[in-house]
Structure formats: C-alpha cells, structure tokens
Design a protein around this nucleic acid. Structure first.
Length: 288
DNA sequence: CAGGCGTGGGC
DNA sequence: TGCCCAAGCCT
C-alpha cells in the first residue's frame, strides 16, 4: 500500500482529461458550477451545458439577478433539476453574504444550499488548492479495491474511509489537491465500476482486490431505482413540458402528459412545494 | 439513515 | 432488452 502517490500522480500527469473547469484560468465559479452539474450526471453530458452556463452567467452575480426559472430552463435535461434551484440560491447567497465571491473555506462552502461534504471539499481543493479529503464515489471505489480488497465501497461513507483518506493525503496543500483529483480521475477512467481496466492501472501491482483475483461483490445487492410509473417519471414529464414552453402551460397539456390524475396532482403539488414550478393563473403552471 | 430525487448512454 | 450506473444532497 505504501506509496500510491508517485504512480497515481504520474499516471494523472499523462492521462488527465482536459476539462474546462480544470483549466488554470478557470474561475472558482466555473469549478462550483461543474461540481453541481456533476452530482450524479456524467461528464459528457455536463460539458456543453457548463459551457453555455458560464458564457451566460460568468459570475455568481450574473445568475443571482435572474429568476430561478431561468436556471431551471438552462439546466436542460441534466436531471435532478432541484440542483439548478440550489445553484441559483447559492449564487444569491454568495452575492448577499460573500460580496459576490465564491467563499474559500470548507465551512462557508458547506453552508451554501446544494453543497454537502463532497462538494465543499472538492471546491476548496480544486478551486483554491487547499488540503481536504475529497471522497466521491470514484475515490471510494479506488480505496475499496486497492486497499480494502473489495470490489465496491460500503453503501455510505464510513469513518474508516475518512481516516484512510486523511492518511493518504499528502501534507503539502497543492500536492494534496492534485492527489485528490488524480485519484478521482483514476476511478473515473481506469478503476471503473464495471469492467475496470486493471491492465492499464498504475497501481495494479499494489492493488489488494486484483491480488485477490478480483472477487465479486458479496453482501446485499444494491438497490436499483424504480422508474416506470414513479413520481419521478411523472415529475420529469411535467418539467420537460414546462422547459419546452416559453410561458405558462395550461393544465390540459399537463393532463395529456400524465393520465393518472391522482398521481399527477400529487406531483404538481410537490413540484410547487419544491419551488420548481409555480401556479400561473387558475389552471396553468410556469417555471418560477 | 434509507429513501426520494431525472436523465440518457453503454453493455 | 432491460439493467446499471454517473464528481450527491436533503429530510
């Protein structure tokens, strides 16, 4: 296990993807927007939306003056549109409480809407070069395999994972930040969830999982998320409808999009409660 | 803490 | 064809 640093850092130097938010000239805001979009959405789908977002709203203040619905519309089909709402709310908080500048400390970042432990660490590390344990699903999978000898990490982050992350983190902040992004990249490109490319892995000779013959995950099977007929599908259908229209959408159109009236009304109510849509007149809805 | 929350691509 | 997954957050 000793010294994963040199091979991983060397591999990253040769194989890192050239992503817009990793450019030396990328702003902290660019990094922050990318982190919101990348929460559960693949890089390939984020790229074009991130580019247009930064062109339109180069700073938090540019977004903060917009109605929230503009953020939801620009979010397009990235999924989980509440993230767009939270990013918009975070931009307003940055203007109101931080002079329009993305805050630099983990605690201040964590206090913003839509930012949890991972995203706060990632922004502090990637945008500001600080030393933080960055634990995302990629890093956790690399740790689970290389150190733990298991195919998959535990269902939720454990104390042991945090301690391991802290132990492996280089002392120098700049190096720690590079290490964090390098391990993440290794998990994204080589140590993938399915069909890992162990033959091109820089730490294959130190990997406990590979040494053990890549044993399959034992333990309870992971819960897949139901989709067909769920409220999520219904909500998604309604949101797509509103995104694709400029003004308010009449209820009759929404009725046509989802026949089950009980479920439809429940979803409309929850979307209103979430702030993703707003009633517009007696029988119409619009983006906020 | 388990469950809810979108969307589309790859195998 | 389904099924699994993709830089999580919030309640």
């Amino acid at each position: 296990m000793s010294d994963l640093h040199a091979p991983v850092l060397g591999w990253y130097d040769d194989n890192a993807r050239d992503l817009a938010w990793r450019s030396p000239s990328a702003s902290a805001w660019s990094v922050m927007v990318s982190e919101f979009m990348l929460q559960q959405t693949p890089v390939a789908r984020v790229l074009p939306v991130h580019e247009r977002w930064l062109e339109r709203w180069p700073t938090p203040a540019d977004l903060a003056v917009e109605p929230a619905g503009e953020a939801v519309r620009a979010w397009g089909r990235l999924g989980y549109p509440r993230r767009a709402l939270r990013l918009h709310a975070a931009a307003r908080a940055i203007v109101d409480d931080h002079g329009g500048e993305v805050p630099r400390t983990y605690a201040e970042l964590l206090a913003l809407p839509g930012i949890g432990d991972y995203t706060a660490s990632a922004i502090a590390s990637f945008a500001f070069g600080q030393r933080h344990v960055v634990l995302d699903t990629n890093v956790r999978r690399v740790f689970a395999r290389a150190v733990g000898g298991t195919e998959l990490p535990p269902p939720s982050v454990t104390r042991a994972e945090r301690e391991l992350g802290a132990e492996l983190l280089p002392d120098a902040p700049a190096l720690a930040a590079t290490w964090a992004v390098a391990v993440m990249e290794l998990g994204a490109l080589v140590c993938t969830a399915r069909d890992p490319r162990c033959d091109s892995c820089p730490i294959a000779d130190r990997c406990a999982w590979l040494a053990a013959g890549r044993p399959a995950h034992d333990g309870p099977p992971r819960r897949g998320q139901a989709w067909d007929g769920t409220d999520r599908q219904c909500r998604g259908r309604i949101m797509a409808l509103l995104r694709d229209h400029d003004g308010p959408v009449h209820s009759s159109r929404i009725d046509a999009a989802w026949p089950d009236a009980t479920q439809r009304e429940r979803c409309l109510a929850s979307l209103v409660a979430d702030g993703l849509i707003t009633p517009a007149g007696p029988s119409a809805y619009a983006l906020p």
